[in-house]
């Protein structure tokens, strides 16, 4: 059986909120290392990969592999009933028909309990190759969100060019063009404001802004976002969570002339 207790419902609320517009039905794969999710969007352009390690829960118990097939719209409805600060416990039997969610208020004696019917989801898992990326950029997640939103007002695509000069986000549209360039930057007082660019070779790739803006819904999960790029491979956008847990998005590039 599965029993996983989260100190704050907020974490799961934010994760689900960040991915629910990208993927609708997905398996939460539970085993003794934690709860994982991998799903593609309907058009097979983007992939979301979530890992909530067992250490992110206290306690965490999962005796055998259990796949919880959940409709994220349904999960969102139920999670809306949880206060951000509630303790959230997920429970399921070994061959479950439902997943049970319990929300406990730390301040009052209120306990709410919900069951969500599970779905049988035949989901393909993709193998994600280990990649030595040509460029890795860590930057404030709010800054990345702002750049993507600002450029989407002009164009549906953005080119991300990384060189030793810095990283340049540029777009061209009907009304004109725009770009934002960031250089490495260290803020001793506010490390969340740091921009770190780790470059082994220059890289330039083009991506759909619609997807990037969607990924940025995860911005409230982490002060920093990491972008990993290599020529002609999908972009990795990673929001690191506590205890080595993470929410990652992969986005296939636009290629050709």
């Amino acid at each position: 059986m599965l029993e996983a207790r989260l100190e704050q419902a907020n974490l799961l609320k934010k994760v689900v909120d960040a991915i629910k517009d990208l993927v609708q039905d997905c398996n939460f794969d539970c085993n003794d290392s934690g709860i994982a999710l991998q799903a593609m969007d309907n058009s097979h352009v983007a992939l979301v990969s979530m890992m909530l390690k067992s250490e992110s829960f206290s306690p965490f118990r999962c005796d055998r592999n259990i796949a919880l097939g959940i409709n994220l719209t349904s999960l969102t409805k139920v999670l809306r009933a949880a206060q951000n600060e509630d303790i959230l416990t997920l429970k399921a039997e070994d061959a479950p028909d439902v997943v049970n969610l319990v929300f406990e208020s730390a301040e009052s004696d209120r306990i709410s309990e919900y069951d969500i019917k599970l779905m049988d989801i035949d989901q393909e898992h993709l193998g994600i190759p280990e990649t030595e990326y040509a460029a890795t950029i860590s930057m404030p997640s709010a800054e990345f969100q702002r750049i993507c939103r600002d450029l989407m007002a002009l164009s549906e695509s953005v080119s991300i060019e990384c060189s030793k000069e810095g990283v340049k986000f540029a777009c061209q549209g009907d009304i004109g063009s725009g770009s934002v360039t960031l250089r490495s930057h260290t803020n001793v007082d506010k490390p969340e404001m740091n921009v770190e660019i780790d470059l082994t070779e220059p890289v330039s790739l083009t991506f759909s802004l619609k997807y990037l803006v969607g990924f940025c819904k995860a911005s409230s999960l982490s002060g920093q976002v990491k972008l990993c790029l290599s020529n002609e491979v999908p972009l990795l956008v990673e929001y690191a969570l506590a205890n080595n847990s993470y929410l990652r998005f992969y986005l296939a590039p636009k290629i050709g002339d």
Binding site: M40, A46, L126, G127, A252, K254, G256
Partner: peptide
């Protein structure tokens, strides 16, 4: 114009 690639062109099904 550039065309949008599929993620399946990069990551193989297990």
């Amino acid at each position: 114009a550039k065309s949008q690639k599929s993620i399946l062109g990069f990551f193989q099904k297990k």
